[in-house]
Structures are given as structure tokens and as C-alpha cells.
Measured scan of single mutants.
Amino acid sequence: RKEMTAACTPRRRIINLTSVLSLQEEINEQGHEVLREMLHNHSFVGCVNPQWALAQHQTKLYLLNTTKLSEELFYQILIYDFANFGVLRLSEPAPLFDLAMLALDSPESGWTEEDGPKEGLAEYIVEFLKKKAEMLADYFSLEIDEEGNLIGLPLLIDNYVPPLEGLPIFILRLATEVNWDEEKECFESLSKECAMFYSIRKQYISEESTLSGQQSEVPGSIPNSWKWTVEHIVYKALRSHILPPKHFTEDGNILQLANLPDLYKVFERC
């Protein structure tokens, strides 16, 4: 597991931080080997919608929660590849102030007048994250320049770009939802926020969305749709870069829909 690298990086740093090793061990302890084997050997059937997909393993048909699986995938990559990410360069710098204002204007932020003026909160978020810029760049390849612009994001899987519609809320939550006081809790909560931002979430995906850094293989055609990215990038990574937690067998994120021999018997009677 320590050699797990989802995106190509030129050289690998050895990380011996106790906090990170502890988080890696927790993933191992909570892992479910049968689910790992199923995901490793599954045959992708198709997307139901951005949140759900169908896959077959041996004779069984499964309904998989793409949102939760991708979130767990990105969390584990962030923990196992800690401080070893490439950088996704933004085509132009994104001012943190503008991103924070967009987030505060969104109902998702939960902002009320009692929280104070949005401009003041946005300025605080910019200054707060600028103070964390060195650590964010060093460990997470999340790059913020001296003017308070976001200029780079971590490359977690080759050819995958997170849904940038979720970027404003991500920046807001970096400042408000991460435990910045304790090292282990900081790395864990920061990785979880980043994983949620990178995950496939239906509120940020339309039929026209593209999450891939590449064009489709047909010359002159439109960019790959999110469905292509889910199948050929995300579920491909799920084959080798995730140890599913045991609770996925109990919380409805992986559901067995049918045993195909039983279905064949039904059709034979028709």
C-alpha cells in the first residue's frame, strides 16, 4: 500500500510523520478485503446518474454509490500519497476573496446577518489561508500566491479535474471546517474536505460537464463527458487505489441488486 500512486510524480518523498502513518493504519484496520476484491475485478455496466452506477462482479449485479466511493478513493490517495502530488495549474489565478464571496452568497454556506458582513468574512478567509499557504503547498500541492490567488490544485489521478463549480464552497470550508490546531486532526479533516471537493457530486455535474483533463479519443470531437470520466478514470482507479471500509457493506453505498443465475431462471419461465 505504501507504493500506491494514482498520479505520476517525478520522485517520491518518504513521509514518516506519526500522524500520517496513524491515518494510514486506520484505513488498513477499517478495510474490507472482500469489497476490495469485488472492486478490483468488477465489470463496469454503466452510470445511472452522477451519484449511482451499476457494476457486475462474477454472477452478481451491484449498485454502487459513485459519490461515496470516489470520496473515499480521493481521501485514501491523499493519505497514502501525502506530500507526493503533482499540481493542476489553473488556467488563470482565482482570487480567494472572490471565491469566498461566491460561497457566502450560496445558501449552502449557511451565512446569516449575525455572522457579520460577507466582505469582512471573505477578507478573513483570504488572510487565514495565506498564512497556511506554505503547508498547503508542501503537503497538498494546493498553491496560493502572495496576492491571495489560488493558482494550483493537487493532481490526485492523472487526467482528472475536480468539478470546479464546487471550488468556492471548498475554499470556505478549508477556513471553517478544518481542525487547524492538532496535526493528525488537521491532516485528516483537510484531506476529507479535499476528497469531498474532488468527489463526483450530482449538484455540480450536468450532462455537459467534463471532468477530464483530456479530449476524447476521436479527433475533432467534444470533450469527454462526465460519464466517460466516471467509467474510464474514476472506476479504473477504484480497481487498484481503494481499500473500501467495512461500513460500506452496511450503509447502502454498495448494494447487491441481483444474482444473475437467479434472473436467468426467471427469464426461462417467461
Rank of each mutant, 00 (worst) to 15 (best):
V20G: 02
W52M: 08
S221K: 13
I222Y: 12
K227R: 06
I144T: 03
E177R: 06
E185I: 10
Y139S: 03
Y204R: 03
S22E: 15
P162N: 02
K131N: 12
L156W: 02
N28C: 10
N149G: 07
I77Q: 03
N159W: 05
K2D: 10
V234P: 00
P95R: 09
L211P: 09
T176K: 12
L21T: 04
L190A: 05
R89Y: 15
V45T: 04
D105S: 13
I200M: 13
S141H: 04
P245W: 00
R13I: 08
E114P: 14
N224E: 15
E92S: 11
L129D: 01
A53K: 00
L255K: 10
N65E: 04
E177T: 06
Y198F: 12
V230Q: 02
N149L: 13
P10V: 10
C47Y: 11
L54G: 01
M101E: 05
P50S: 14
P168H: 05
S141W: 00
I242H: 01
L104Y: 13
P93I: 06
L54R: 01
T229G: 08
R239T: 03
C270S: 15
S43R: 09
N28V: 12
E182R: 10
W228A: 11
R89E: 15
L238T: 04
L63I: 06
G120I: 14
T67H: 05
P154L: 01
Q214E: 14
P50D: 02
F44T: 02
Y264K: 15
Y124F: 09
F170N: 00
I79L: 12
Y139A: 03
Q214P: 10
N41K: 14
N149E: 08
G120S: 10
A6T: 05
N28H: 11
P261E: 13
M135E: 03
E33C: 12
A122N: 02
P10W: 07
S216W: 09
L153N: 02
E26D: 11
T18G: 08
V218D: 14
E177D: 10
G252A: 14
N41L: 12
A55C: 08
G31F: 05
I14F: 08
E185L: 10
D158I: 13
I77G: 01
P244Q: 01
G213Y: 15
L102M: 10
P50C: 07
G220F: 10
L243E: 11
F140A: 01
G120Q: 11
L238S: 03
I222C: 11
C270F: 13
N253H: 15
L174T: 04
I222K: 13
R239L: 01
L153Q: 01
G31L: 07
L129M: 12
R239G: 04
Y139E: 01
S212Y: 14
L61Y: 06
I233Q: 11
L96S: 03
F140Y: 10
S216N: 08
T67A: 05
Y139V: 03
L156V: 05
E108N: 09
G148W: 04
E268A: 08
T210D: 08
S206W: 08
H32N: 12
G148R: 06
H42W: 03
A83F: 01
S19T: 08
E29P: 02
P163F: 06
L88T: 15
R1W: 10
F140G: 01
G120R: 10
L167A: 04
L255P: 03
T229F: 04
L35E: 03
P154A: 03
S206N: 13
K60P: 01
S199P: 01
E147Y: 13
G31C: 09
V34H: 15
H57R: 04
K132E: 05
E217H: 09
T67L: 01
Y198N: 03
I254G: 01
W228N: 06
P245N: 04
A122Y: 02
V266C: 15
Q76T: 00
V161N: 15
T112R: 09
S43L: 11
I79E: 02
Y160W: 02
W228S: 06
S206L: 09
E123W: 06
L153D: 01
L23R: 02
S191I: 10
L61I: 08
G120V: 11
K227D: 04
E177C: 06
D145S: 07
F85E: 03
N179E: 13
D98S: 12
I157R: 02
V230T: 12
R239D: 01
Q203Y: 06
K184W: 04
I254D: 01
H57Y: 14
G31V: 07
T66Y: 02
L96Y: 00
E147T: 11
L260V: 14
L255I: 08
L255Q: 13
D158W: 07
P117E: 15
R201F: 01
R1T: 15
E33I: 05
L64G: 00
Q76P: 01
Q214W: 07
I77T: 06
S199A: 09
V48C: 15
S91G: 13
E193Y: 04
N149T: 12
L172M: 10
G213D: 15
A53Q: 01
E188D: 14
T210A: 07
Y75L: 02
L90Y: 02
I14G: 06
L39T: 02
I242L: 12
I242T: 03
I233L: 09
I242A: 03
L88F: 10
E188V: 11
G152T: 11
E113K: 13
M196E: 12
F97T: 09
R13N: 07
K2M: 12
F82H: 03
E29N: 11
W111M: 11
A6G: 07
G166M: 02
P244V: 05
F170T: 02
N149C: 08
E250I: 09
N41F: 07
T5M: 04
T210P: 07
C186I: 03
A175G: 07
P244I: 03
K265I: 04
T9R: 11
E217Y: 10
I205W: 04
I79F: 02
E92T: 10
H57F: 07
K130T: 11
F97Q: 08
N224I: 15
V87L: 08
E33D: 13
G110P: 12
G220Q: 13
S109E: 07
K132S: 04
L142A: 02
I14K: 12
E119W: 09
G220Y: 13
N65Q: 02
S212D: 12
D262C: 08
S216P: 14
L69G: 01
L174M: 12
H40C: 14
I222E: 14
L243T: 09
A122K: 00
E177P: 00
L150Y: 01
Q76Y: 00
L21D: 04
N84T: 04
G148M: 13
T59I: 04
Q203S: 13
L102F: 06
D98C: 07
S91Q: 14
L90H: 02
I200H: 03
C194M: 14
L255N: 11
P50M: 06
L35R: 00
P10S: 06
Y235S: 02
H40Y: 10
G31T: 07
R239K: 09
I15L: 06
A237H: 08
C194D: 00
E146G: 12
G31P: 02
N159F: 05
N179T: 14
L121Y: 12
K192E: 05
I200A: 03
V87D: 08
T5G: 05
F197Q: 02
N224P: 15
R1I: 13
D181C: 09
D158G: 10
L54E: 03
Y235L: 02
Y204P: 04
E92Q: 11
F248M: 14
N65C: 05
K184C: 07
P154K: 02
H241F: 13
V126D: 07
L260A: 12
C194V: 13
G31E: 15
E217I: 11
P163D: 05
L142W: 02
Q51V: 10
Q215V: 15
S106V: 09
L243W: 13
I14R: 07
D262A: 06
V34N: 13
L39Q: 00
G120A: 06
C270Q: 14
A53P: 01
K192N: 05
L174F: 00
A100F: 04
S43Q: 13
L156G: 00
P117N: 11
E182L: 10
K132L: 01
E127T: 11
E268Q: 08
P162A: 03
Y124S: 15
E25A: 07
V48G: 02
I125K: 02
R12E: 13
S191H: 02
L243A: 10
K132V: 03
R13W: 10
M101C: 15
E146H: 10
E92D: 11
I14E: 14
A55N: 01
V161H: 13
E37A: 10
H32Q: 10
V48W: 09
Q24E: 05
I125P: 01
E26W: 04
I242R: 00
E72N: 05
E188K: 10
F128H: 14
V178F: 02
T229A: 11
M135C: 05
Q51W: 01
K68G: 11
A103C: 05
A83I: 00
V45Q: 05
E119H: 08
Y139G: 02
T9H: 10
Y124M: 15
L142V: 07
C47K: 00
L102G: 14
G166C: 03
I151T: 15
G220W: 08
